[in-house]
């Protein structure tokens, strides 16, 4: 399968205070994104996600190593015809309305005048901004600006769409619509690379993910490979256990949380479930729910980050 993004030993340093102090934002980053995949780029704040994206879209130049996008250097101007980009918390010319702004973007992307209007109308419908086309963007909410942002990223029908924290500031409906747009883009054969903090969204739509911490890529792979299909824990909710029985169960499970008349118990194996069921039958307690839990991306993300932090210590 062809690679849309390839970075080799990508390193970026920033200098502050007359070059006296150097901050390494990313270090020896080796990343590959395949054609027609949705790639989620994860990491805590300050991990280097935005810097990586800035290098990929040519806003900043690497200190060392290289970043190739669609087979060409990320600093190549021509390659930008094939890239759609939405930065984190995008800012627009607030004196323009969405149509004027999209027209400017279309013009700068080299789209023929006759084609511009057709694309603008299509995108305005896609992002549902029909009611606000004549309104200057000065008065737009964060969600509305984000919609303009996705429209401008798609105005030139790019092959690769790079989105930096696209779900930030969106309400649940907006997030869902955004997810649908991303999935639709994948259906159209586009590659999507996006960074986010919202792991539930990644789990729902991404084919592969990469986790970055302190400027280094610490893990990358397919979601099913990373998360696996095995059950990690069982979560039981039981009613009718007295304090004495809770003490007994605490010897089997290390996570027992009593609340008013219920007890939440987490165990790791089926055998432990069986043992607790035996105790319950003896005292006449009632099982309200039994939920097998698989590993979530959040669990994986947190454990990877904890592992890395332990290594540093």
């Amino acid at each position: 399968m062809g690679m849309v993004i390839v970075t080799e030993n990508l390193t970026k340093d920033y200098h502050t205070g007359f070059r006296a102090h150097t901050i390494r934002a990313i270090e020896n980053l080796n990343l590959e994104v395949e054609v027609r995949e949705i790639f989620g780029f994860l990491g805590p704040n300050g991990a280097g996600k935005t810097t990586t994206i800035k290098v990929l879209v040519g806003l900043t130049k690497p200190t060392r190593g290289r970043a190739m996008v669609l087979g060409k250097s990320s600093t190549d101007v021509d390659i930008k015809k094939l890239i759609g980009f939405l930065p984190e918390s995008p800012y627009f010319y607030e004196y323009l309305n969405p149509v004027e702004y999209l027209k400017l973007c279309a013009q700068l992307s080299g789209i023929a005048r006759a084609e511009q209007q057709r694309r603008i109308e299509k995108l305005i419908n896609l992002v549902r901004l029909e009611r606000f086309v004549k309104m200057p963007m000065r008065g737009f909410s964060r969600g509305m600006l984000q919609r303009v942002g996705i429209a401008q990223a798609l105005i030139h029908d790019p092959e690769l769409v790079i989105l930096d924290e696209p779900m930030g500031g969106l309400d649940p409906i907006g997030r869902r619509e955004f997810r649908d747009i991303i999935l639709k883009l994948k259906e159209q054969g586009k590659t999507i690379f996006f960074s986010t903090h919202i792991l539930a969204d990644v789990e729902m739509i991404c084919d592969r993910v990469g986790i970055i911490l302190n400027g280094k890529l610490i893990n990358t792979g397919r979601l099913d490979e990373i998360l696996g299909s095995e059950i990690e824990t069982f979560e039981m909710v039981v009613r009718g256990l007295d304090r004495k029985m809770v003490k007994v169960i605490e010897r089997i499970s290390n996570k027992v949380i009593p609340s008013e008349d219920k007890v939440l118990i987490e165990v790791k194996t089926e055998e432990e479930v069986e043992r607790i069921m035996v105790i319950m039958r003896e005292v006449g307690a009632k099982l309200l729910s039994l939920i097998p839990r698989r590993k979530t991306l959040e669990d994986h993300f947190i454990s990877e980050i904890q592992k890395e932090r332990l290594k540093e210590i």
Partner: peptide, 14 residues
């Protein structure tokens, strides 16, 4: 400052 140029110079423009 307002980062409006992010969306201009990331287009095919020198």
């Amino acid at each position: 400052e307002k980062r409006t140029l992010y969306l201009i110079i990331t287009r095919p423009i020198h």
